[in-house]
Simulated scan of single mutants.
Amino acid sequence: CLNRALQAGSRVILNQVGLFADGVAVKQVGAEPFRLAKKYVDEVITVNTDEICAAIKDIFDDTRSIAEPAGALAIAGLKKYVERGQITGQTLVAIDSGANINFDRLRYVAERAQVGEHREILLAVSIPEEPGSFLAFCKLLGGRSITEFNYRYFDAAMAQVFVGISSSGLETDRASVIAHLQAHGFLVTDMTTNDLAKEHIRYMVGGHAPCELHEIIYGVEFPERPGALLKFLLELGGRWNISLFHYRNHGAAFGKVLMGLQMPQTEQKSFEQCLEELGFIYQEATENPAYRLFSGGMS
């Protein structure tokens, strides 16, 4: 295919990648092969794992077939080439190859595709450990949706949260969001391109709470629509301190939140009434063995 393209006088671009999306390490293309390759191609483009996952999603959206990472590599490079050069009005061709991907890898691809399309920003944010802080943070995001929020009480003064935020699809949007949060006094660390954070840390945010926390645990289900999470927090109105919070948008009709609250048992009825007025489905989970073993209070 390369020879035919060269003979036809086409512009040829070569992709370079060091790690495929299925987690199989591939030897990085070295300097000597690159030097030789550049004799026959016009440009070299480097793509990362997230961009390959986004390309796999694009191929599926267009053809209803799922390409493996090697097959999606050309699409990923072509997308980056178009974005970087703001190219319009041209016909571009990518050579796709490879068999269907292993089904077990699809969840990994789906989680990484949003970042690869610049539609999800992942941040670590420090917020004051006090009622209403999460609400104030959400208000700053305006009309953006929160795609994920992981938090566990640890320090009495400052909370560390892992948060996913929907993005417009533009690479520049990430810097704008971070600058906006920093301007309002939040300490922000960008985790969007941090592989360790995306593959491990986001699922490890947690730990046991001290016994004196006296928290009550609820599983809450609510309609997944823009603003639903913010509406939920507004209804709570900062009356109770949230000591545990986990939410992840999965594209389903209903969102699920696991949350812990510091409240006297005498106030449980008021909290549950709040949920009922919102029409949310809920269940207390304080005695759930999974919570007790991995997140509950320890002496």
Rank of each mutant, 00 (worst) to 15 (best):
A76Q: 11
T192N: 08
V44E: 14
M191Q: 14
F134M: 15
L187C: 06
Y247G: 06
R84S: 10
R11S: 09
H180Y: 05
I121P: 07
Q262V: 00
M191D: 04
R292S: 13
E224Y: 07
T193E: 08
A124I: 02
H180F: 04
D58G: 03
F154L: 10
K269I: 05
I178T: 08
E284R: 14
L213Y: 04
N3L: 03
F280M: 10
S65D: 07
E68S: 13
H246S: 14
F149T: 07
E221T: 10
A253Y: 11
G164C: 13
P210W: 03
L233R: 12
E130P: 00
E43W: 06
Q28T: 10
R202H: 07
Q283V: 12
L78A: 15
K38F: 09
A197T: 01
L261D: 04
L261I: 10
N3V: 04
Y108D: 11
G255S: 03
W240G: 00
R248F: 02
D62N: 15
G255E: 05
R152G: 06
A37W: 05
I201R: 15
N249C: 03
K80N: 06
A99C: 05
F20I: 13
P33L: 06
G116C: 08
I56Y: 05
F294H: 13
G238D: 02
V115G: 02
I101T: 13
P264Q: 10
A253S: 15
V26I: 09
F280N: 11
N150V: 01
Q90D: 11
D50P: 05
G255I: 00
S97T: 11
F103L: 12
A136V: 00
F149G: 08
L213I: 07
K27L: 06
E272S: 02
D58V: 06
I127M: 06
K269C: 00
D42N: 15
E277W: 07
E120C: 08
L135V: 01
H118M: 02
E267W: 04
F271T: 02
H118N: 15
I66C: 10
A72T: 07
Q86S: 09
K256S: 07
T286E: 12
L170H: 11
E235G: 06
E284H: 05
L278S: 09
A159Y: 01
T286Q: 11
H184L: 01
V161A: 08
A94D: 01
G18F: 11
F154M: 02
T91I: 04
G279P: 05
F137W: 02
A72P: 08
F280I: 04
I75Y: 12
V205C: 12
C53H: 11
I127E: 09
T88Q: 15
S65V: 03
L236Q: 13
M191G: 00
E284I: 04
A157T: 01
A124R: 15
G238E: 00
F222N: 09
A110S: 11
Y40D: 13
A136Y: 01
M259D: 03
V188E: 14
A74F: 05
E111P: 04
F245C: 13
V47W: 10
I87R: 12
A228R: 08
F294T: 11
L123G: 10
